[in-house]
């Protein structure tokens, strides 16, 4: 399992200065940052585990928990906020019982919802990204049907 981690580490020359890049690549591989790879990273770049954990918990893009099969990213930039992002989050909470923060993933790892501070596509506000696909001008109602559609596609 750790071979992939070693490969990533080697591609960064086991360099402590590349810790952020190393963790990004590991997250891309595993979908989150599992404990074992983090320990491996600390060992290989010769950094205290606390430093690696410090980075992994400081930056928003890292997750220490497994994330869902489907990822819903809600843009909460200013334009999206004034155009209705809170209602979109409300719809997600009603439909899936999850909200950005501690309870961001459904049981059984179906969905993860995350809030991002501006994705730089303000013309599409309120903007939601479902599994990498941008969805513009989303309302509570549209969010509801996006979730239903995604759930159905899963069952197939």
């Amino acid at each position: 399992m750790l071979e992939k981690v070693d490969r990533i580490l080697t591609s960064h020359g086991n360099d402590k200065a590349s810790l952020i890049g190393i963790l990004q690549d590991i997250q891309a591989e595993y979908n989150y940052l599992p404990p074992k790879p983090l320990e491996r990273v600390a060992e290989k770049v010769d950094a205290p585990l606390s430093q690696v954990l410090g980075i992994a918990t400081f930056f928003q893009s890292f997750s220490l928990k497994p994330r869902g099969e489907h990822i819903i990213t809600v843009c909460t930039g200013t334009a999206c906020h004034v155009k209705g992002a809170p209602r979109v989050l409300g719809a997600i909470e009603r439909e899936l019982g999850i909200k950005p923060g501690d309870d961001d993933t459904t049981e059984g790892l179906g969905f993860t919802v995350e809030a991002v501070n501006c994705l730089g596509s303000c013309a599409l506000a309120p903007l939601v990204v479902v599994d990498g696909k941008y969805q513009g001008h989303v309302t509570g109602k549209k969010m509801q049907s996006l979730i239903n559609k995604t759930q159905k596609s899963k069952k197939k």
């Binding site: 205290p48 606390s50 430093q51 400081f58």
Partner: peptide, 22 residues
């Protein structure tokens, strides 16, 4: 010491961590 503690998390969640390092 051994340099094995550091800050973790950020903002109001910031803590000091050691987390069982060797």
């Amino acid at each position: 010491g051994e340099g094995k503690i550091d800050f973790a998390f950020r903002g109001i969640d910031t803590i000091i961590t050691y987390k069982g390092d060797v």
